[in-house]
Amino acid sequence: MSFARALRAAPTMLRIGVAETVAYRAEFLVWVLTTTLPLVMLSLWSSVASEGPFKGYSSNDFVAYYLANLICRQLTGTWVGWQISEEIRTGSMAMRLLRPIHPFFAFAFSHIAALPFRSAIALPIAVGLLISSGASSLTTDPAQLGLVLVSIALAWIITFSFLFAIGSLAFFLTKAMALMNLYFGLFSLLSGYLMPLDLLPSWIGRIAAWSPFRFMLSAPVELLVKPMSRGAAAELVGKQALWAVAIVLLAMAVWTRGVKRFEAVGS
C-alpha cells in the first residue's frame, strides 16, 4: 500500500533529489573527492607489488582491484545514516513524518537521484582506466559481468538499509555519530575497501566472508575481477540477496521501534 504510493510519487521525488544535488554543488565535489581513497591505496599496493607479486597479487591485479573498488563504491556509497541521525538530533525529522511517504523511500529516492551526478566525474575516468590498463585482470564471462550489475544494485540496497538502521539508532542514543565512525572503521576493513579480503589474516578473512560488509562492496568487485565458476558467482549473489532482505527488515524494525520514542526536539 505504502509502497504503491511511494512508487507513484517517485518521479517528483527524483526531481526534488536532482534539484537538491544541483543546489549543493560544493558538497558534491567534496563527496567525490572523499570517495577517491581507493586511488591512494592503489598507488600504495601497486608500488609494493612492483618489487614482486604480493601474496599472489601482481601490480596489475591491484590496479584492476582498486579501480573496480572505486567504481562500485561510487555507485553504492551513501551518507543517509549521517542525515537521519542529524535530523533526529535537531528535530527536523518531524517535517518528514508529516509527509505521506515513508522516510525510507523519501531518502532512497533522493539518493538515487544524486547518483548520476556523484558518479559523473569519477566514473568515466575509472571505467576508462580499468579497461585500458587493468583489462587483463578482469573477468570476461558475460554471465558473470551481467551478475555484476545485479550485485551492485543489491550492494546499494544493503548499504543504504544498513546506514538507515544505524542512523535510526539516534532515536535511542545521544551519540549515534560515534557509532557511525565505528561502522566506517569496520566497513573499511571487512568490505574490502582498504584491501582485498584475501590479503587479511585468515581469521579476520573468515569473519569478513560472512559479514554483511563484504556484500556492500567486495561482492561486486570480486565478480568483476575474479574469474569464478557460474555456480560460485550465483551463490555469491544469492547470499547477497538474503542479506539484502534481512537488512531491509532490520532497518524497518529499528525505525518503527525508534519513531515511537521520537520527541521532535526543538519544534
Partner: peptide, 29 residues
C-alpha cells in the same frame, strides 16, 4: 560554500594517508 558538513570526512580521508611513510608512494602521489 556554506554546506560543507562533510568536509571533516574529506579531511579525515586525506589525512588517513599519513599513516604510511611517504616514501611508500610513487610518482604523482
Amino acid at each position: 560554500v556554506v554546506r560543507l558538513d562533510n568536509l571533516t570526512y574529506l579531511l579525515g580521508a586525506v589525512f588517513d594517508v599519513a599513516r604510511w611513510p611517504v616514501q611508500v608512494f610513487r610518482g604523482a602521489w
